[in-house]
Design a protein around this nucleic acid. Sequence first.
RNA 1: GGACGAUUAGCUCAGUUGGUUAGAGCGCCACGUUGACAUCGUGGAGGUCGUUGGUUCGAGUCCAAUAUCGUCCACCA
Length: 1064
Amino acid sequence: MTTEIPKQYDPAAAEAKWFPFWEQRGDFNADPDPTKPPHVIMIPLPNVTGALHMGHALNGTLQDLLTRWRRMQGYEALWMPGTDHAGIGTQAMVEKRMFEEEGLTRHDVGREALIERIWKWKDVYETRILSQLKRLGASCDWRRVRFTLDEVCSRAVRQTFFKMFQDGLIFRGKRLVNWDCFLQTAVADDEVSEEETDGHFWTFNYPVVEETSDESRVTSAREDKGTPSETSPALSTQYSVLSTGERISFSTTRPETMLGDTAVCVHPTDERYMHLIGKHVRIPVNGRVIPIVADALLADKTLGTGCVKVTPAHDPNDYACWTRNKEKMGEPINLLNPDGTLNENAGPWQGQDRLVARDAVVAEMERLGHFEKVEDRKIPLKHSDRSKTPVEPYLSEQWFVKMDTLAQNAIDAANDGRVTFYPERYRQSYLSWLGEKRDWCISRQLWWGHRIPIWSKRLTDEEEGATEDESHSLCARGGLDESGARVQMVCIAPNDRDYETQFEQLGFTQEPDVLDTWFSSALWPHATLGWPDTEHNPPLTSSSPSTLNPQPSTKNEVLPYFYPGSVLVTSRDIITLWVARMVLTGLYNMGDVPFKHVCIHPKIQDGFGQTMSKSKGNGVDPIELIEKYGCDGMRFTIASFAGETQDVRLPVGYECPHCQAVIPQEPHHLKFKPGKPKIKCSKCKKESQYATPNYTPDEGEPIARVVIERFEYGRNFCNKLWNAARFAMLNLESRDESGESRAREEVLAASPALDSRLSTLDSSLALDSRPLALDSLPIEDRWILSRLATVTDEVTSLLDVYKFDAATRSLRDFVWNEFCDWYLEMIKPRLRDEALKPAAQRVLVAVLDTTLRLLHPFTPFITEELWQRLKEIAPSRGLPRPTQAADAIIIAPWPSGLEAWRDSTLEARFQRLQDLIVAVRNVRGTYNISPALTVTISVRCSSESAADLEQVKSQFESLAKATLTAAGPNIARPTKASVSFSLGDSDGYLPLEGLVDLQAELARQKKEADKVRGFIAGTEKKLGTSSFVDRAPPEVVAEVRQTLANQQKQLASIEEIVKLLSAD
RNA sequence: GGACGAUUAGCUCAGUUGGUUAGAGCGCCACGUUGACAUCGUGGAGGUCGUUGGUUCGAGUCCAAUAUCGUCCACCA
């Protein structure tokens, strides 16, 4: 029975049907299989902080495309899914919500309770993210979902830290960090961004003082850790203001930092100040005396007053200056408490918020007469990406990983080609970042994350020194704590957790800090495969309660089989944060790179060229688009954008709920608006609500939803494919009641008109030789097969180098412009002819079969739907001999080895036929000939072309609504009123008496002749240039000569016509 | 300030190693729905390839300068 095939593809139904189908069959699963090569992609793990956006949709589409493609090619294709705990972001989100809803801070609930709350949050979002990925059709091995805080990953983190600690790569140090006062943690340089902020630019002065006692060394650094603020006021009594009353002026945007100044700095060659170098000034607000130092790197003669105050504890440049001038300056003075209030070093301002104290200090300076001026200024201020609050430079104790060797190894891997970037240019950003070899600050003052596996205890005065001890599970070292006291530090490896309790009983306490999120995601490629456990395969689900040994394996087979991976697919902004660090840790832990290729894809922007992001309010939910355009439509469109050069710009619109007109998004739509923002439709003039960054529209109300019209490209393509397949299937089936089997018999029936060996389809056909079978086919069959072979090659080699856009174009052009527009049209007459039908069906189904397989990685759902339907009608198909089709397209073999089908000469011949038909259509269009009217045409051409024409003669009707009356070299020129065209090597004549205005035709032909004359003039000029003829390669010259000959021939034909028409 | 990318039709983008008359999709114009598809078909209009120099027989393509936009890095008293 004929299964009803609807006229429109229904994406939602197909998506709901085939994803569970694949999953239940286990098609997504990847396990070590020595008979197959592995192909491995590790997902760039999404953060559990929120929902997926368009960038993820692009990223996921490409990875799934590659995974499905390689799976069809016979690889054991693993796409590893998982999520990232995203330390700062997630904790900030939960803390913020907790504060908003319950008024509680993390200190109110405590470490364990907060972590518990975050786990719950994580469960919700992880589920949401994973289900979103599935909606994209992601063929991940869903049994292997990992989470950076699960047991498998945690163990890898502990082991890596332990190993690095043992190797002396991890150290503790004071460092000026970006301090997030809201989250009370250090934030990496990579996690802060600058924003222009309104601020002030104050100018003050400090009085220059001179010594009045013998004490010459004033603020020399003391050996012990005394607080500098205690010492300075005491010494200040030994100085008095210069008799000249000289003052030194400077400007600042942060006056409160005056309290922590340890020097003022001038340029060593600045004539205004050279005489003051080595003298001192007194800070009026606290009376401290500080030196005037010279530093060419910090001070710039041309800027401001040329003099800078130096606050090493609160400014990176000042800190750098301090490291250069330590012996002159004294220790940096930290003014801040972790929450952004001033500490005891601020004297009377202790306890005040830094911003409050700022004004107070300004007032005090003014009162004391040291204020000069203030101006308003836009100040670039660093903000924490996570909390969106301004960060403060803050001197604190942090843990670091030494980068020199590690970074060098990662540099070498990219230089010697073990890691290749696509496009190649991104290697540079990777290399230049690693080249700095800046030590990696890995500690974060958070609770959500991997707690640093160091236990320490202060050494008493009696204890001589720390024990240095290294074993497979313990590594002990001496060190200093934050206050500078001597401590015994012990790092404990993951496999000896008993030690943890033992040491705690001995009075050791674990570090409160957790590790930078990137520390765990850097291990992702090998941690997910079970490293460092070499004895067991990694457990199959992260939620599985059984810990690390759920399977009876005695060897981890997964890790060596799937490591190193094949390709990492990501966007350029985390090349440094993540890609470089994965290479680095992969080399360190595994001795090999984590992936061979890095595919960097474009970023998604809105219609104004701005990166899409939730905070900008221009983000778009991919699920909404999937619902509107279908998953395959979205995937196909998005893949068509993914090229090497440009970012993807997606102009967004709002669809009027009243009339479905699309209202283009304008920048003002993205601004924060009070109340319930409404948008007015330019067509029906009605208003409706729409979503803005600060407003979610009321459900039930008419809402103007976000649409991206560019996605119609993919949706339309899917529908076209659907209908082409529908046509094919309708024509594969028999019309009588015996149904399917009858259809097959027809296909299998011999067709005497064609090669019997091809058409006699039974098992004995094994004797068939392809070239013979091909030769016997009509020209359109051989053409489409040749084109298909070419396209198969193109797509395969384009995917090899990650040129998704070009592959998509190639496929679309083939399906739409060649298969649908030409081939299907051309075989329609044969499908109506019972004698010719079987062979046509054979080729048709083979082409459809191969095309679907080529498309599957791009559009998985529609191709599976069609594959399954086709299976019912034609379970065996293919050329030259039918074979049983695969049970599901997801595991069908990727087309290859079609070289025998290629025939470039034939493609060129066919092109001539196409040109001829287009020319006829052109004439029809020009004279507006009724589509109902069949015209006749005679063609003067070579006998070879005439033979080709003869073959497609019967299809002229449907292709051009024209009857070919005669073709050949000796075709008579028309003597009566007629329209003609010249293609150079052939001319067509269409008698159209009474239908056309002969004067108009004459004018048209004259115009055409002029045009060709223009071309000829250009070509002749070129050939007349001796330098061209002498210097250009001979084949180019010959080519141009041939062109000229053709043009002249064409002109002769046209002139002949013109003469004829003029004479009439 | 440094690096990288972009600038081609009204819009969004292709354009392989320099080589006849620069392409596509959308939009626009004209015509067209009895059997695959109006999410469609046929035909058409529309571009001095950001600007200025240079190399070359020949430049959208290579080189230099410049403008504008974007991204990353560094810096900003």
